[in-house]
């Protein structure tokens, strides 16, 4: 346990019965938001699976174009970042602010590694002329290949946007942890951002095999 100095004490908002009521209500709001996220990504995934059923050869060729080693690396990076995110919450809950900051920092770095690998993948494709929809002008593909890559860019792009937003949220709670806002008696913000970051991991768990392996 290493609390350098006592941070600000959290007072729950007046429309709640007590701090616990506030924590549970906030978390329930985060979970409702997560359901909308699942439905949004879910609709895109079902669309992907329908067109994969209609044009299996096109999707197989598209999937073969992707480097599964980079996808697998990114999967492990995100799973590891989920672990460090969960550990960040664990340490704030036992009032070890230093270790919480360390773990949240590692989570943030994992986000950068993920985006770096994504950048390598995207720039390689752009170089070959693999763009979504009508901008596709790569050689040696089936006529319907742009369909696969439109899904690829939509799914990975939307997921990438969530990674960027998640990283922003992690940076925000890191500042608040450093200021001493969170402790074993109040960690709502860290918990909520954690749930969001794990959802980003959750979406990628489905995207990796569907796009890279069985495409």
């Amino acid at each position: 346990m290493s609390i350098a100095k006592e941070g600000e004490v959290h007072h729950f908002a007046h429309h709640f019965d007590d701090a616990d009521h506030e924590y549970e209500s906030t978390k329930q709001g985060v979970w409702l938001f997560m359901v909308t996220e699942v439905l949004m990504f879910g609709a895109l995934l079902v669309g992907y699976l329908i067109f994969k059923g209609l044009y299996p050869e096109v999707f197989e060729q598209g999937g073969d174009t992707l480097n599964w080693k980079l996808g697998a690396t990114n999967t492990v990076v995100l799973i590891f970042s989920s672990l460090t995110m969960a550990l960040g919450i664990y340490y704030i809950r036992i009032d070890d602010r230093k270790k919480a900051l360390l773990n949240l920092g590692i989570t943030l770095i994992c986000g950068f590694i993920f985006l770096g690998i994504k950048y390598i993948e995207y720039s390689h494709k752009f170089h070959l002329g693999i763009f979504p929809g009508k901008y596709f002008h790569a050689e040696g593909f089936m006529p319907d290949a742009p369909l696969y890559f439109s899904f690829y860019y939509m799914l990975t792009g939307l997921h990438g946007l969530h990674v960027v937003i998640g990283m922003g949220l992690i940076a925000w709670i890191m500042i608040r942890v450093a200021r001493g806002t969170y402790s074993s008696s109040y960690w709502t913000g860290v918990e909520g951002v954690g749930i969001f970051w794990h959802l980003v991991d959750l979406v990628w768990i489905y995207l990796f095999p569907l796009l890279y392996l069985v495409g």
Binding site: V38, L39, G42, L49, G53
Partner: peptide, 28 residues
Amino acid sequence: NRVIFAAGFFFLLLFSVVCLLDIYTRIN
């Protein structure tokens, strides 16, 4: 919270299973 999240997954399952049964048995 478990019910909330499970409800999301349940409707996604319903959506995908009905669509995929159609595509994979009838069309292709």
